[in-house]
Structure formats: C-alpha cells, structure tokens
Amino acid sequence: MTEHTAQDLTVTVRPARADDLPGLVASSTALFAEDAGTRDPSVDADWPREHAAASFTAALDDQARLVLAVEYAGAVVGHLMGSLAEPTAIRPVKAATLISVYVRPAHRSSGAGARMVEAFVQWAAERGAEHAEVTAYAANTDAIRFYERNGFAPQTVTLRRGL
C-alpha cells in the first residue's frame, strides 16, 4: 500500500496475510499491555495471547473486516483492524469502526499510523460507509490527539461507575 524510508529501511503499510499472525498477535499484545492494561482493570490484558490469533484469522477471511500490517525490516511492527456494520432500524447507515491500531514506539515517527488510518477510511468509504468511528480511553490523550489529527472528532462520552 504505502512505503516510508527510515534509516535506509522501508516501513510498509499493507494488507495483512496469514503468515503475519505471530507479528499481529505480538502487536495486539503490546497494545493491550500499553493501553487497556494500564487504563482499565476490567479488561483482561492477557486476552491477545489466548485469542488474538483466532480473531485475526477470522478477520483475514471476512470481507467486512480489514486487517493491515506495518512491516519494517521484514517484521510486523504494527497493525490496524477495522470492521463494517450494516444499517439497522436504530442506525440506518453503514458505519465503519476502527477496532484497534498500534505501532511499536520505535516506529511511531514513521507516519505508519496515519497511513493505516487513511487506508481504513478509504476502505470504508469504498464499501459505502457513511462515517467511521473509533474509541479511546479518556486518559489516553496521545491517542485522542492522534485520532483528532486524522479527522476524528468527539461524538459520545462513556461514563463509568464502579460497583
């Protein structure tokens, strides 16, 4: 899909393949550890180790889901997963959800995150989605700024009360 040169090596954003599964699982595991694992004690931070391979495998075979990989020097160093939701009676528009996006810290300055988001938005628009959405933890101000720089704007707020 797109390439960026950094230190004489190429960072590539491309559709993920089945042989990327170990790297996709590692990327998802790192995302959970860095984000939900530090911000939400109700999330099982070990979920990717047990379930991410099956989740990515199913997504790779589903036309309503998109999986992208960031490749650097032959290794997967990031990923994006998105999905489409068909219209319903309560929400009569097709919508796209950016489920997860992660780029390892050493590769965040490569622009790969923004290129993945742009590829996701293009993919969703080509399939008739009327809008795209993403959620982020309120405490993850870096992610919120990233999404805002990439055209997303606040729409809803989730408030939680522990019991």
Rank of each mutant, 00 (worst) to 15 (best):
L68H: 03
R17T: 10
D19M: 07
H107I: 07
E3G: 15
V103I: 14
V25Y: 01
G82F: 01
P92I: 05
R115V: 00
L66A: 03
Q7V: 12
A6Y: 13
V11D: 01
A30W: 03
M116C: 06
A54K: 11
D142S: 11
P92D: 06
E148L: 06
E86P: 10
R39H: 11
V93A: 12
E34D: 11
A129V: 02
E133W: 09
F152D: 00
T2Q: 10
Q7I: 15
A124L: 05
A54S: 10
A125M: 09
L163Q: 10
G37L: 04
P22V: 08
E118A: 15
D142Q: 13
L98I: 04
A18H: 13
V11H: 05
G78H: 01
R14T: 04
K94I: 09
P48L: 04
E133A: 12
V117E: 03
P15T: 09
D46K: 13
A124G: 04
D20M: 05
W47T: 06
R149Y: 06
A58V: 06
P41T: 08
F120R: 00
F56Y: 08
V43A: 10
V101M: 06
S109D: 14
A114Y: 00
A96I: 03
W123H: 04
A18F: 11
A45E: 07
Q155H: 14
I99F: 11
Q122I: 14
A96T: 03
F56T: 03
T12R: 15
A139Q: 14
T5E: 12
H131K: 12
Y137R: 09
A58C: 08
A129Y: 01
G78N: 03
V103L: 03
V13L: 03
L66G: 00
A112C: 08
D62L: 08
A64M: 15
E126K: 11
A136S: 15
P22A: 06
T5P: 07
T12G: 07
R14Q: 08
D44A: 06
A52E: 01
A52M: 01
Y147A: 01
A143D: 02
V25N: 00
G74R: 08
E130Q: 15
G82N: 03
Y137W: 10
A36C: 10
F120C: 00
F56A: 01
V43M: 09
L68D: 01
P41F: 07
A96W: 03
E118L: 09
A106K: 08
A58M: 06
T5F: 12
I144D: 00
V70M: 11
A114I: 02
I99S: 12
G23H: 03
A75K: 13
Y137S: 08
L21G: 02
L84D: 04
D40F: 07
A33T: 13
T88P: 05
A143N: 04
R160K: 15
A143I: 05
A59S: 14
I90H: 14
P15K: 05
A16W: 02
V157Q: 10
V70I: 10
A18L: 12
A132K: 02
V121R: 10
R49D: 08
A54E: 13
G113Y: 00
A73G: 13
T156G: 09
A33S: 10
A89C: 11
R91Y: 11
L66R: 01
S83Q: 13
D35A: 14
